[in-house]
Amino acid sequence: MIYLQLFWSFFLVGLFSFGGGYASLPLIQEQVLKINSWLTPAEFMDILTISQMTPGPIAINASTFVGTKVAGLPGAVIATAGCVTPSCIIVLTLAVLYYRFKGLDMVQGIIKGLRPAVVALIASAGYSILLTVLFDSDDYTFRLSDLDFIAAGLFAVSLFLLRKFKLNPIYAMLAAGIVGMVIYGFLPSF
């Protein structure tokens, strides 16, 4: 039952992505690449790229994209519903508790414990994304001889501009895209 599977996978993504934004990245990666292989690593990169240019949280964008690809429009709706269902249940429960008890020490404690782990998991997702971009590798392993020098150069310059000049991420990405289009576009072998 593909619909049930889509719902469940994105339910888990919604349920365990604490901290918003990039926190859902490693979970989406695990669900759509490792457990279900609904996307290739290249397609996963594409959805990240598209997410940066379109409205809405990455998790929602990814559920819609994967849902459409795997099972058309109904798939998109079901995957997206799966992704927001845990939010609805948990947030509403917290809201009721907030208006009744106010103190949320326990929740704060859990979040505090999760924060460093979330950073580490985003880092691990970032690591494998970097390997995909630089070595076209879909695992945590790579061969140095496979290094894509153009991608490495674009990556290094973008990162430098982001760190040094706090460049807007959208501009960094668009600039890398345009330079990439010019360079790769003229490579006959690409």
Binding site: T49, A123, V133, F155, L162, A172, I178, G180
Partner: peptide, 30 residues
């Protein structure tokens, strides 16, 4: 499409940089 593919490949290098930037920021805070 050849050009779209090239554009995406370039943008992905940018996305990777954005994510690494976010990770550095967050890890430094911790």
């Amino acid at each position: 499409n050849h050009l779209v593919k090239a554009l995406f490949k370039g943008m992905q290098a940018g996305v990777a940089a954005v994510i690494v930037d976010v990770v550095i920021e967050m890890a430094a805070r911790i």
